[in-house]
């Protein structure tokens, strides 16, 4: 005698299968949200961490080429339009505020912008030199040449030429705001990324 067909057993198996397969289909079609962020970094002239300064000294002589690479990686999960702003600061001008996601008030020298695919890394060759130094009382003021573009004398002085800093800020385009914003929005929170490299200069003679 063969086992009889039990319709209730069959229906419960069918319902379980529908639930299981639906869950699998949903999980495949809706991948899990991962954390969204950007990565910003600076490498020396040999594409490595270190060797940021020529002759291994933070005092940069006039007309000496300095080569860095500024990298941005997009881990936002979508295409992003980003900008890296380069500013010249000193020891008294405040840097960007990570807590309030406020950029530095230091004057902007140059900016670089690009559209990045998700998971794409963009490396900006950053070649610069100090073109001129002028003394105003006890502070030195400098003009720079960055990637072939001259900045003119920047209105940021450092006492005896010590503790200048180049500040690199990452900005991203916010379509709702219709403009670039410092940092990015992730899960309703504003995050930011910036780096700074200190250097000194001296007046010739």
């Amino acid at each position: 005698m063969r086992a009889s067909f039990n319709k209730w057993r069959f229906l419960s198996i069918l319902t379980s299968c529908i639930l299981i397969y639906s869950t699998i289909a949903y999980a495949i079609m809706n991948p899990r949200h991962r954390e969204q962020f950007f990565q910003l970094y600076a490498l020396g002239g040999r594409h490595m961490i270190g060797d940021y300064y020529p002759e291994n000294t933070t005092t940069i002589p006039l007309d000496t080429n300095v080569s860095w690479y500024i990298g941005v990686t997009n881990f936002m999960g979508s295409i992003q339009y980003v900008m890296v702003k380069v500013k010249l600061g000193n020891s008294s001008i405040p840097p960007p505020n990570q807590t309030t996601a406020t950029p530095s008030p230091a004057p902007e020298l140059v900016f670089f912008r690009r559209v990045l695919m998700d998971n794409e890394t963009w490396e900006i060759p950053f070649n610069w030199k100090i073109k001129s130094v002028e003394r105003r009382r006890d502070e030195l003021y400098i003009s720079l040449k960055i990637n072939g573009v001259e900045t003119g004398v920047v209105n940021v002085g450092a006492v005896n030429g010590y503790n200048f800093r180049l500040i690199f800020e990452l900005w991203s385009y916010d379509f709702d705001a219709g403009q670039f914003v410092f940092g990015w929005n992730s899960n309703g929170e504003r995050r930011s990324a910036w780096i700074q490299i200190w250097f000194n200069t001296t007046i010739a003679g």
Binding site: F10, Y21, S22
Partner: peptide
């Protein structure tokens, strides 16, 4: 596909169960 697969899996499960009982 989801209901078809579920139906096929259920029938298969029912067949296997019946065979095992037998």
């Amino acid at each position: 596909l989801v209901p078809l697969l579920s139906l096929f899996s259920s029938l298969l499960a029912e067949l296997v169960y019946s065979w095992w009982l037998e």
